[in-house]
Each structure stands twice: as C-alpha cells, then as structure tokens.
C-alpha cells in the first residue's frame, strides 16, 4: 500500500529545505517537533507540495498545519493515502 515513511519524509526535508547544523535527521526524530529540527511552515509547505505531486493526492493543508512532529505529519498523510486506497 502507498505509504509515506519517516526516511522518505526526512529525505524530502533535507532536499527541500536543507539541514540545520547540529541536527541528525537520521536519528530518532519521529516525535521531535519540526521547529526543533529547524523547519518552519514554509519548509513543510514545500514538502507537502512534493508529497501531493509524487503520490498524486490532495492533502488537507490546514490539518497538516497542525502537525507539529514528523509522527503527526506522517499519520495525517498516511490516513489520507489509506482512505484513498479504500475508496
């Protein structure tokens, strides 16, 4: 099933918005707030645009705005992907 994994998300963050100094995206960052990883809403907007494009899905951007951590973000994206698969 089509899913977005953490490794894919961190790779996208790195490509789209760069990597802050002293931050290890390969570590256990699932519950680290995006703001602590050095990413602002624009960085996430950039990532969301690419997820939508590559997975051919339209995401609820307002709901994604509420996602403060990679886990919350991935849950929202994967719920949308599951819902589409079930439809």
């Amino acid at each position: 099933m089509d899913r977005l994994e953490l490794t894919e998300l961190t790779a996208l963050l790195r490509t789209c918005a760069g990597e802050g100094e002293g931050i290890d995206l390969n570590g256990d960052v699932l519950d680290t707030p995006f703001v602590d990883l050095g990413y602002d809403s624009l960085a996430l907007l950039q990532v969301t645009g690419i997820v939508e494009r590559d997975h051919d899905i339209t995401l609820d951007e307002e709901a994604l705005d509420e996602a403060e951590t990679p886990r919350q973000y991935l849950d929202l994206v994967n719920q949308a992907l599951s819902a589409r698969a079930a439809a």
């Binding site: 490509t15 918005a17 760069g18 802050g20 100094e21 050095g38 624009l42 950039q46």
Partner: peptide, 8 residues
C-alpha cells in the same frame, strides 16, 4: 550560507 538557507 547555512544549509537551511541554501534551498531558499
């Protein structure tokens, strides 16, 4: 320029 600023 920092890594975070390069893409923007």
């Amino acid at each position: 320029v920092s890594g975070r600023l390069l893409p923007q």
